[in-house]
Simulated scan of single mutants.
Amino acid sequence: MEKAFLKIILCSLLLNYVAVFSASQDFDFFYFVQQWPGSYCDTSQSCCYPTTGKPAADFGIHGLWPNYNDGSYPSNCDPSNPLNPSEIGDLKRSMQRNWPTLACPSADGTQFWSHEWSKHGTCSESVLDQHSYFEAALSLRKKTNLLQALESAGIKPDGSSYSLGSIKDAIKESTGYTPYIQCNTDESGDSQLYQVYVCVDTSGSGLIDCPVFPRGECSSEIKFPAF
């Protein structure tokens, strides 16, 4: 009887341990995604500049997205924790420069950031609160500096076409890690550089080798449009 009771207690403790461990391992890595505004705006859908004016001709943050090693991802993890703009008031000016909204109608960015926090940020709140989440993304953008990496390799946003391999190599040379390149098509149907994914550890601070890349491939030659 005592052995059976002890067995039940041990099983209960083990299940509790597994539950706590699983809760702390709620994602495996981040995708840090930046987009080229010229490629967002020259599609048939077009774009709208933020109410603060036309963004700089530089890569802007799209998001910091928790992911699993099998390629799936969590989303909308905590509807009870919407973005509180006052939590990121000191970051707002930097976010308007580095994380601009290009969706229509024009806005100041708050709705865009709120969407990113609700869909993705809440799935990382075990390690990053609202302020830390956005601060981490801003720091990663500065650390990666994609435009400088590309221009240092002679790859410039002037409407020319470049090999996909040379773009990946330039970013790897600068960051130390192979990126994933996502393309879209302009109004003429030509493939162009749209978004760059790099992978980040679960602290939101260190770049890592990507455990898995998103599906989809660009053409071997892609445009880098002006903005």
Rank of each mutant, 00 (worst) to 15 (best):
F32R: 00
F224E: 09
K156S: 14
I9L: 15
Y194C: 12
P105D: 12
L15K: 00
P37R: 10
S12E: 01
S152Q: 15
Y133F: 11
V212S: 12
S72F: 00
L164P: 01
N76E: 00
T122G: 01
C218R: 12
R141N: 08
F227M: 15
T43L: 07
E135G: 08
T185A: 11
S106Q: 08
A19W: 06
Q130Y: 05
R97Q: 15
L147G: 09
S166I: 00
I61S: 05
L138I: 07
N69V: 08
H120W: 08
A137T: 01
F32V: 04
W117V: 01
Q25W: 02
F224L: 12
D90S: 14
G53M: 12
A170G: 09
I88M: 02
A136W: 02
H115P: 04
Y31G: 03
H115T: 06
Q111G: 07
F213A: 14
V196F: 01
V18F: 08
D169R: 10
S24K: 03
T43K: 09
E187D: 12
C210F: 03
D169V: 00
L146Y: 10
E87N: 10
Y40N: 13
I88P: 02
L91N: 03
Y40D: 12
L150E: 13
E135Q: 14
S205F: 00
A136C: 02
G71N: 02
I167R: 05
A137V: 02
C77Q: 02
P211F: 07
A56G: 10
V200C: 07
I155P: 07
T202W: 00
T202Y: 02
L10Q: 08
H62K: 10
T122I: 02
T202S: 05
A4E: 14
C123D: 03
L13I: 13
T122E: 05
I88H: 01
K3C: 15
V200H: 04
